[in-house]
């Protein structure tokens, strides 16, 4: 039997995390499944657990310097009903699980679980999000794609907690979120796409494209985006297949119990082409 801590402040939580190497427990909807093994038995956690979502310090959603800060303790349902949360993220979160689970689950927990199939995380990639990591002595920020390093792997240090998600203001004019799930609701992702672009007149000023569940982490290519940015819509139209093929080469999905590599690749490319077509002339 492991210990469970319910700290009364973030400071105390950080101390427990650092001293005991305790497992951060937010909504718990990933952990309760991951460590359960028998109906009626207490899950087998590998380390002491710290409950976090009751901490007021990490339950806030606020704007600062044009950026949105989501406290790590806010549930998916809370952020869905918040007026300042970007539409792209809301759309993604709306496709996660079902109402009951969204009342419990947190985006921060999803990030730390580091599944390449997490729909909300896919949207966070396309929104250039960062995470704030706090330890008893300091805090730091990492881009989400720097933080997540592989399936189930992150840069979270043993004395750190993810305390905030920071999302720059989304100034996109065209957006697409599409989840291809195992069914129409309460579904896990076979693949997903979150994409946003800013067009000014005939020019593509900015583009951000993230593909979920087609590689070990959510896939985003800043390099390809740079090649697209600055093109006229007509130029993009001409070179569209070139870009599609470049993305296709990076898409490396797997076969698993939910779908096949062949399907994931084909459909991811179809959706990507659809998005690029929608912003090209």
């Amino acid at each position: 039997m492991v210990e469970a801590y319910r700290p009364s402040s973030l400071e105390e939580a950080l101390k427990i995390r650092a001293d005991k190497g305790a497992l951060p427990f937010a909504g718990g909807t990933d952990l309760m499944v991951k460590y359960r093994y028998e109906s009626g038995a207490v899950p087998e956690y590998p380390a002491p657990v710290i409950f976090l979502t009751h901490l007021e310090e990490i339950r806030k959603i606020y704007s600062q310097d044009g950026e949105l800060h989501l406290g790590a303790g806010t549930s998916l349902a809370e952020l869905m009903s918040h007026s300042e949360v970007p539409e792209l993220l809301k759309e993604a979160v709306r496709t996660i699980a079902a109402p009951g689970l969204r009342n419990t689950a947190t985006l921060a927990g999803n990030i730390c679980n580091a599944s390449p199939a997490a729909d909300g995380v896919c949207a966070l990639y396309a929104l250039d999000s960062r995470v704030k990591l706090s330890s008893p002595r300091s805090s730091r920020e990492l881009a989400i794609y720097e933080f997540i390093t592989g399936p189930g792997k992150t840069e979270l240090r043993e004395d750190e907690l993810l305390t905030e998600i920071i999302i720059p203001r989304d100034r996109s004019t065209t957006r697409l979120f599409r989840k291809v799930g195992t069914r129409k609701a309460n579904a896990l992702s076979k693949l997903s796409i979150a994409a946003a672009a800013r067009l000014s007149g005939e020019r593509v000023d900015e583009v951000r494209i993230a593909l979920g569940a087609v590689a070990p982490t959510v896939l985003r290519s800043v390099e390809l985006e740079k090649q697209i940015q600055g093109l006229s819509r007509a130029e993009l139209s001409e070179r569209l297949e070139h870009f599609v093929q470049s993305y296709e080469a990076m898409v490396q999905p797997i076969d698993d119990q939910r779908s096949t590599a062949v399907y994931r690749k084909k459909v991811a490319v179809n959706l990507l082409r659809q998005f690029l077509t929608s912003i090209a002339a």
Binding site: A4, R6, F25, G27, G28, T29, M32, V33, R36, S39, G40, V49, F51, T53, H54, A77, A97, A98, P99, G100, L101, N103, T104, N186
Partner: peptide
């Protein structure tokens, strides 16, 4: 009721602080 024990089926739904939750996903410590 317990139907799946992993937050999928909703048979264990209760209302906690005014919100629907799956009670199989909630540690009593919270």
């Amino acid at each position: 009721k317990e139907g799946c024990a992993e937050g999928e089926c909703g048979a264990c739904s209760v209302i906690k602080d005014g919100l629907l939750v799956n009670s199989c996903m909630v540690p009593i410590g919270t």
